[in-house]
């Protein structure tokens, strides 16, 4: 049913993380998410606050590659019920904050 929502990311060329036009689309998507998170959480619309709450160093944050280091933290968020809703999507708090950080890079 939501096939049209997925078409941009399941064709095999997009979201592979490489420096291609697909990667750019992935970055744009995460930045959209991050901006939305910051709009919903104005108290976290600050790079230093996000770095502190994510518990990561400034040097490693800001790219899509950084997101892949958060897998365990994301799972822990879900297990603990630490989630946020962005346009109805249930996302882990870490996912939201990480996307917000990427959007500020």
């Amino acid at each position: 049913m939501v096939g049209s929502l997925l078409s941009a990311c399941t064709d095999g060329s997009a979201s592979d993380g490489s420096e291609t036009s697909g990667a750019t689309e992935a970055e744009r998507a995460v930045i959209r998410l991050g901006r939305r998170y910051r709009a919903d959480h104005p108290d976290e619309d600050d790079r230093d606050v996000l770095l502190e709450r994510l518990g990561v160093a400034a040097g490693v944050a800001g790219s899509l590659r950084f997101l892949s280091t958060l897998d365990a933290q994301v799972a822990e968020d879900y297990a603990s019920g630490r989630t946020v809703r962005l346009d109805g999507w249930v996302l882990s708090q870490t996912e939201g904050r990480a996307a917000a950080l990427v959007s500020l890079a």
Partner: peptide
């Protein structure tokens, strides 16, 4: 708003 494609990109990145 945030679409399924956006979330799929995030999920793939994580």
């Amino acid at each position: 708003g945030i679409t399924g494609a956006d979330v799929a990109h995030l999920a793939r990145s994580v």
